[in-house]
Design a binder for these strands. Structure first.
Lengths: 177, 177
DNA sequence: CTCCCTGCAAATTTTTTGCAGAAAC
DNA sequence: GTTTCTGCAAAAAATTTGCAGGGAG
């Protein structure tokens, strides 16, 4: 595995957790049920690991965390992680978020309200934000094109507030006197 | 190479080509120049191949087209194609467009106006559309968050008009009489 | 002339798969 | 009991890299 450029920037928790009646695990069990599939220990371990926080993650991170022996839930093989991530995506529990340069990462698609992302070109930080208007505009535009919108994926690229702020001056003119 | 699920659906040409003063090749030459890099025959061949039409494409497609002997421009090695695609992305000539399930594909990011995509969940077709309002809403939302927007990437998922239309009835009731 | 670039082949990285035993239902 | 899983190891797919010779500026 690679430990390349970190994919660890947290998805800033501007958004409060949604009220969800069933846990991600239950939700997954339901999905599997309708397809004659089973909720195994491995699958449950993976879902718990993924939904333990609201960070973004990629396949490799989950593989390395679950592949080595662990305190609680048992370890899970690489193949199973891949197989389960695909299922979780179909189940609508997670989805991919593309990041301009870097590779793609997953994010939770259950338990949190619909939101979009700001991606800073300087520090690569990914910030979630929520705006009602965007959806309604899209809803209308879609209708105009005879398209039945189910959802959307939006990334706004640019420079975040922190990176835009000029670096702190070391010496001010006054110091020179 | 893989000939998996086609990635050939055309990017419907709803959008007219922009007036561009310099060709993609020239644009690339400029970019390379500012970095002490060179516009080689291979790089030119690749750019021409890519900008010959306005279809979306992935690395593999370009590799297979340019890797075998060709009428005009000479062949280019796999490694060079990968290396050049990366440069073209940095140069802002192409960019990645994520497609829900399938893999990512590239699209032109030069010579065509800013636009977004509808992606049909049924037929996977990718349709480009253009809407002024979206940008202005994003501009405002960004400002509210202290974010300096440079651009955005948006995909609207759902069902396209064609797929939404019910299949043609074979036998109408009258036929039964 | 001097670097930058290319092709090649090998190395890496990432994801998928066949199969035998294990485990849900 | 069946049928669906899992882990393993190997295979396949996708991308990157070192290096020696070739070419752009």
């Amino acid at each position: 595995m690679t430990v390349g450029p970190a994919v660890n920037e947290s998805a800033t928790n501007e958004l409060a957790r949604h009220e969800v009646t069933v846990s991600p695990v239950e939700k997954f069990r339901e999905f599997l049920g309708t397809r004659g599939k089973r909720l195994t220990q491995e699958r449950e371990t993976i879902v718990r690991e993924i939904f333990a926080d609201h960070e973004h993650f990629d396949s490799d991170q989950i593989v390395s965390r679950l592949t080595q022996p662990r305190r609680d839930g048992g370890r899970v093989s690489r193949a199973t992680v891949y197989r389960t991530l695909r299922e979780l995506e179909k189940a609508g529990l997670i989805r991919k978020v593309a990041r301009s340069n870097d590779r793609e990462v997953y994010e939770h698609d259950y338990g949190y309200p619909q939101h979009d992302h700001f991606i800073c070109e300087k520090c690569s930080q990914l910030v979630e934000f929520r705006n009602e208007e965007i959806s309604s505009v899209l809803e209308r535009v879609s209708a105009e094109h005879g398209f039945r919108m189910k959802g959307h994926r939006l990334e706004v690229h640019g420079i975040c507030d922190a990176c835009a702020r000029p670096p702190v001056r070391r010496h001010r003119k006054l110091d020179m006197i």
